[in-house]
């Protein structure tokens, strides 16, 4: 819905930034692997109340890395990001309210 911005519609500069090299991709994959390992580790190592926030942060970071680097959102037109983010934000807010109405959060 944020496509209403006027500034970018014509002549959006055609960005042809250099995409990362294969080596860079490997590095990113390595970071992803490390985070995944950390995620799985939480299953074996108990960290108490911090567990769910930690998991969520790691999940979001992984999501962001894949979207930004592998899906090239960092380098591509903002229009793409806008549609994707619209979908994500709408989904999160709508389903958050949905679960709230079902008293999902308070049930534990």
């Amino acid at each position: 819905m944020d496509t209403s911005e006027t500034t970018t519609d014509v002549e959006e500069e055609h960005e042809h930034h250099e995409h990362p090299s294969d080596g860079k991709y490997m590095q990113i994959a390595l970071i992803l692997a490390i985070i995944t390992a950390a995620e799985v580790a939480t299953y074996f190592v108990h960290i108490g109340d911090a567990l769910i926030p930690t998991l969520m942060v790691m999940m979001v970071v992984k999501f962001w890395i894949v979207a930004a680097w592998f899906m090239h959102l960092r380098f591509d037109s903002k229009m793409f990001t806008r549609f994707f983010v619209s979908g994500i934000v709408l989904a999160i807010s709508v389903y958050f309210i949905f679960l709230t109405v079902f008293e999902f959060w308070t049930e534990g």
């Binding site: 229009m79 793409f80 549609f83 994707f84 619209s86 979908g87 994500i88 709408l90 989904a91 709508v94």
Partner: peptide, 9 residues
């Protein structure tokens, strides 16, 4: 990308 936005929902 529009389709992927849709898939989020």
């Amino acid at each position: 990308w529009v389709f992927l936005g849709s898939e989020c929902l």
